[in-house]
Write a protein that binds this DNA or RNA. Structure first.
Lengths: 186, 186
DNA sequence: GTTCCCATGTAACCCGTTACATGATTTT
DNA sequence: AAAATCATGTAACGGGTTACATGGGAAC
């Protein structure tokens, strides 16, 4: 009974903080792990149903005045054990990386140079934006001692993104579009 | 008629090299773009059907003695135009990154230190293996002038993987498992 | 001379994303 | 007062992965 998809355990893990509505869990997922493991809102709902069927969480409907009723979940003892068991079991779902940009780049032989250069500009710009955000996140998390591992996940994102930015600089051909000159790291 | 998923264009792009059987295309996908855009074998088949319905490729059954019959495809003029149009159109499907390892790491507060350390070892080892493979690939591709962009995609993988390895070194806590000492880059 | 891999393909299933719905609160 | 956003949720679709099938050649 131990082999659920990673997403299930992720939801379970998010719930470890205490009783939460599924809407809130979805929200939290977006703000915490979304950078390396996105979970669609609706998927949170279905995962919770499954987890409840398995007895790892239990949910209860809560009526609200003015706002729609909500369903609030909390982990069971069994759920806590399952999460722990999963965490400590060896192995993990392999990293998957998928880049629409690289697909274009891979075939970009048959593109004319200006279009290709523009493509790269676009990618660079996005990478830099991401870099900024991650720098902020890491710095912020550094101030919270309990957030050690959270910070480290952000740090990996940061280091990887830095590498991406460096790559864009390395492959940029001189004489491309003028728009390419944007100052890096403030 | 221009908005197909990236996978469709990837298949189309792979076919740009000339007539190929769908089995071979799947094979080629595995050996070329799989690092940043995996396409399951069976997906190649369905994509080709779709592309044929759209008139972007055309296929023909070829009988073989001893080996099972195969179906061979080639691009149409329309297909060539569609690929070109897609390549030169601005934008691309956003990068998606998903790391089962990081999910565990994120929640690893509640793991005991030795298990966590072992987890990191495992990840490090895989990253190093990947690094080696990519170093080889980049070096090899450097010797083929026509493979410029192919080489650059591999280079991005390499630089990113290097960053990952550096991260593993940065977050490794001293006094972990002894197994952690493995010499890097030969 | 079994056992494993290759070449070729189909079918089923599930995960994940997008679209749809709706009443209340805040914004313009 | 109209428009956007929030809080809450369901439904449908499609992409992607895994499992299944099969006969010939290669390996041991």
């Amino acid at each position: 009974m131990a082999d659920l998809p990673t997403t299930s355990y992720a939801v379970l893990g998010l719930l470890a903080g205490g009783k939460m509505s599924r809407y809130d869990i979805a929200q939290l997922a977006e703000q915490s792990i979304a950078n390396f493991w996105t979970i669609a809102k609706s998927q949170v709902y279905s995962e919770l149903s499954r987890l409840e069927d398995l007895g790892l969480v239990k949910g209860k409907d809560v009526a609200q005045k003015a706002l729609p009723d909500k369903r609030v979940y909390e982990m069971t003892a069994l759920g806590r054990k399952a999460l722990r068991g999963w965490l400590e079991s060896p192995g993990y779902e392999g990293d998957r990386y998928r880049s629409g940009f690289l697909v274009k780049w891979f075939f970009s032989d048959s593109m004319d140079a200006s279009k290709r250069s523009h493509l790269l500009d676009q990618y660079t710009q996005q990478a830099r934006a991401r870099l900024n955000a991650l720098e902020g996140a890491v710095e912020y998390l550094s101030s919270i001692p309990e957030a050690k591992y959270m910070r480290e996940t952000a740090l990996l994102g940061l280091m990887v993104t830095r590498a991406v930015v460096e790559w864009t600089e390395e492959v940029r051909e001189p004489g491309g579009s003028k728009r390419a000159t944007r100052r890096a790291r403030a």
